[in-house]
Simulated assay, not measured.
Amino acid sequence: MQERGREMNAVAENAVPRIFDSGAEARRAVRRGDHRAPTAGIAPGFVQANLAVLPKALADDFFRFCQFNPKPCPLLAASEPGDPRLPLLGEDLDIRTDIPRYRVWRKGELVDEVDDLMRIWRDDLVAFAIGCSFSFEEALVEDGIRLRHIEQGTNVPMWRTSMQTRPAGPFHGPLVVSMRPLRPADAIRAIQITSRFPAVHGAPVHIGKPESIGIADLSRPDYGDAVEVKPDELPVFWACGVTPQSVIAAVRPEFSITHAPGYMLVTDLKNSRLSVF
């Protein structure tokens, strides 16, 4: 049965994504089980978020970790302990049911991927919603910048780097970056555009020479799918909201939950509201 479920997910992931008119409509489809594929592009104009869920005993330290590392972890909202709602992001939002695929971690090890959290939710859990690059990607595409992973219908490639996050309490570990290959003129324009969106990772953290940030092979990402970097293109790297997953692997908390990479929380916030100018 589990293998059959994975086969169905694979079919869904290769299908043309359904487009929803609002974040609320997208969440309802996920909640019903009608959408189990990655969420890129499914609700144009609406902010999507990464997820990290931790026990209350670690919540204050993780909150400070987000404050210390705003590029990879731009915090959009946090829940009260045990409360699955995030009213700042959507009135009917339920963090237990509204993401297509979750990852469950125990002592830093990935132990399961599930479609909802109803059976494992606890009264001491605190949910953190972290800004996602899907928001600035929409602005890039609107400006005419072509993004290869979107054109190919794949997840953006991501790597753990040799760049370290600023520690907070027990939380520490490598920065994760996402990469988009761009021609030099488009890279310059992308810096200008993404600088307007600090709440969703902002400007790139590195351009070119992947080996200088500890990436040995662009054809083998740690997360997501590889894309070609053509001879006339530069690899452009942004801080990534998957960073908490690499931190969880380093910290090894007793229990934690994240989204599966590419399977985000669709909110009611508009991308245009996140632009600072």
Results as ranks from 00 to 15, higher is better:
residue 3 E to D: 14
residue 5 G to P: 06
residue 6 R to F: 15
residue 7 E to S: 12
residue 11 V to L: 15
residue 13 E to A: 14
residue 13 E to G: 11
residue 14 N to I: 11
residue 16 V to K: 15
residue 16 V to F: 11
residue 19 I to W: 06
residue 25 E to V: 09
residue 28 R to C: 08
residue 31 R to L: 07
residue 36 R to M: 06
residue 37 A to I: 07
residue 37 A to S: 15
residue 37 A to H: 11
residue 41 G to P: 12
residue 41 G to H: 10
residue 42 I to M: 09
residue 43 A to I: 01
residue 44 P to D: 11
residue 47 V to A: 05
residue 51 L to T: 02
residue 51 L to E: 02
residue 52 A to F: 07
residue 53 V to Q: 00
residue 54 L to T: 05
residue 56 K to F: 13
residue 58 L to G: 05
residue 61 D to S: 15
residue 67 Q to S: 14
residue 72 P to A: 04
residue 75 L to P: 10
residue 78 A to R: 15
residue 79 S to A: 08
residue 84 P to R: 05
residue 85 R to P: 06
residue 88 L to I: 02
residue 88 L to C: 03
residue 89 L to G: 05
residue 90 G to P: 07
residue 93 L to K: 01
residue 96 R to G: 08
residue 97 T to S: 14
residue 98 D to K: 07
residue 102 Y to M: 06
residue 102 Y to E: 04
residue 104 V to T: 07
residue 104 V to H: 13
residue 105 W to N: 11
residue 106 R to D: 07
residue 109 E to G: 05
residue 111 V to T: 13
residue 114 V to P: 11
residue 115 D to K: 11
residue 121 W to K: 02
residue 122 R to A: 11
residue 123 D to H: 10
residue 124 D to W: 07
residue 125 L to N: 05
residue 128 F to I: 01
residue 130 I to L: 12
residue 130 I to P: 01
residue 131 G to Y: 03
residue 132 C to M: 01
residue 134 F to L: 13
residue 135 S to N: 02
residue 137 E to W: 03
residue 138 E to M: 00
residue 143 D to N: 14
residue 143 D to M: 09
residue 145 I to G: 05
residue 148 R to M: 02
residue 156 V to Q: 06
residue 158 M to H: 00
residue 163 M to E: 05
residue 163 M to S: 03
residue 168 A to C: 10
residue 169 G to R: 09
residue 170 P to A: 09
residue 171 F to N: 05
residue 172 H to C: 14
residue 172 H to G: 10
residue 175 L to K: 02
residue 177 V to G: 04
residue 179 M to Y: 06
residue 180 R to N: 08
residue 182 L to E: 03
residue 183 R to E: 12
residue 185 A to F: 13
residue 186 D to W: 04
residue 187 A to K: 06
residue 190 A to Y: 03
residue 194 T to A: 09
residue 194 T to Q: 01
residue 199 A to W: 11
residue 199 A to G: 10
residue 199 A to Q: 15
residue 199 A to D: 14
residue 199 A to N: 12
residue 201 H to C: 06
residue 201 H to D: 00
residue 202 G to I: 03
residue 202 G to T: 04
residue 202 G to H: 07
residue 204 P to Q: 01
residue 211 E to I: 05
residue 213 I to L: 10
residue 213 I to S: 04
residue 214 G to R: 03
residue 214 G to Y: 04
residue 215 I to W: 06
residue 217 D to Q: 02
residue 219 S to I: 03
residue 220 R to G: 06
residue 221 P to M: 05
residue 222 D to M: 09
residue 231 P to G: 12
residue 232 D to N: 14
residue 232 D to R: 07
residue 238 W to A: 04
residue 240 C to W: 00
residue 242 V to Y: 00
residue 243 T to L: 02
residue 249 A to I: 01
residue 250 A to V: 06
residue 251 V to C: 13
residue 251 V to Y: 10
residue 253 P to L: 04
residue 259 H to M: 06
residue 259 H to P: 08
residue 261 P to A: 09
residue 263 Y to R: 07
residue 267 T to M: 05
residue 267 T to A: 08
residue 270 K to A: 13
residue 271 N to D: 10
